[in-house]
Amino acid sequence: MNQTIETILNHRSVRKFTEQSLTQEQIHQIVEAAQSASTSSFIQAYSIIGVSNPEKKKKLAELAGNQSYVENNGHTFVFCADLYRHEVAAEMEGKNISETLESTEKFMVSLIDAALAAQNASIAAESMGLGICYIGGIRNNLNEVSELLKTPDHVIPLFALVVGYPDQQTDKKPRAPFHHIYHEDEYEQDKEQYKKELLEYNAQISEYYKERTAGKRADTWTSQMVGMLDQKSRLYMKDFVTKKKFDLR
C-alpha cells in the first residue's frame, strides 16, 4: 500500500482545531490540488471562496447551525457550483447560452465538478498533516450565506470545507459493507442479504459509538439514517436553485 492510499484510508472528520492558521502557501497548494481534479469537458464549473475574515467566519458558523469549528479552524473553504464565468464567456463571444446553463445536466455537472475538486483538496490537506471536515450545514440558510459571500446568479454555495491543525484525536468511523457499495456487473438486489449485512453493520456502528462515548450512545446506522431522513429539511432548496438561475430544465 502506498502513502497516498494510506492517507485516504486514514481519513476521519476533525471538529476541533488549534488556533494556528494555514499559511498562504498551504492555501495555494490546496486550491491548486483542487484545480487538478477531473472536470467534465474542461468546463470547471465550480469556484472556491476562502473565508478568513473573523466576523464572516463567525456569521458563517451561526448560519451552519452554530458549529464552532466553522469559526475556529486554520482556514475555511466554501465550494460553489459556478456557471457565472461561463455566462461571462458567452457575453465575450456574443452568444446567448442561458438555456444550456439553466439545464439540469449543467447543474449536475457543476455539482460533480465541485465535489471532485473538494475531495482533491481534502486529500491534499490531509497529506500535509492537516485535518478536515465537510460542512453541509451552510445549506440550512443559503439565502443568508449567498448574501454574506456575495455570490451572483449561476453560483450556489454547496458546502464548506474547514481545514486546520487537529487539536483532538478522533476515531475512524466504520464504513458501510463493501458489497453494499461495490456491485459487480449489475446491482445486487437480494434484500435478505442486504438486511443480514446491515444488521452486522448496525452492531459494528453501535459498538463504535459505545466506545467513543463511554456507553452514553449506542444507536445503529439504520436507526440513525431513518431518523434523519424522516425529518423534512431544506425544503426550500428547489426554489433557491431556481432563483439562482439553475432552472433544472
Rank of each mutant, 00 (worst) to 15 (best):
T4E: 11
E6C: 11
E6H: 14
N10F: 08
H11W: 05
S13I: 01
S13L: 05
R15C: 06
E19T: 10
Q20C: 06
Q20W: 05
S21M: 08
S21E: 12
L22Q: 00
T23E: 12
Q24P: 01
H28R: 14
H28Q: 12
I30P: 00
V31Y: 03
A37Y: 09
A37E: 06
S41C: 10
A45D: 02
S47Q: 12
G50A: 13
S52C: 07
P54M: 15
K56D: 11
K56L: 08
K56W: 05
K59R: 13
Q67I: 05
Q67G: 05
Y69W: 09
Y69D: 02
V70T: 13
N73Y: 08
N73W: 02
H75G: 07
T76Y: 08
V78Q: 04
D82R: 01
L83R: 01
L83Y: 04
Y84H: 13
Y84M: 09
R85T: 03
H86K: 14
V88K: 15
V88H: 11
A90C: 08
A90W: 04
M92S: 10
M92P: 01
E93V: 07
K95S: 09
N96Q: 11
N96E: 11
I97L: 08
E99P: 03
T100N: 10
S103V: 03
E105S: 13
V109R: 00
L111G: 06
D113A: 12
L116G: 11
L116E: 06
A117D: 02
A121S: 12
E126P: 04
E126M: 12
L130D: 02
N140C: 08
L142S: 06
L142A: 08
L142D: 02
N143Q: 13
V145E: 01
L148G: 01
L149C: 10
K150T: 04
P157W: 00
A160K: 00
T170Q: 10
T170N: 13
T170Y: 09
D171V: 05
K172V: 07
K173P: 01
K173T: 05
P174C: 12
P174L: 07
P177M: 05
H179I: 01
H180D: 00
I181S: 11
I181A: 10
Y182M: 09
D185R: 14
Q189D: 09
Q189I: 04
D190M: 09
E192A: 14
L198D: 02
L199E: 14
E200C: 08
E200D: 10
N202T: 03
A203S: 10
S206K: 06
E207A: 15
Y208G: 01
Y208A: 03
A214M: 09
A214V: 04
K216L: 07
K216H: 12
R217G: 03
D219P: 00
D219E: 13
M225A: 15
V226W: 11
M228N: 11
L229V: 07
L229D: 06
Q231E: 09
L235N: 13
Y236K: 12
D239S: 14
F240W: 12
V241F: 03
V241A: 03
K245A: 07
F246N: 02
D247H: 15
L248Y: 06
R249Y: 06
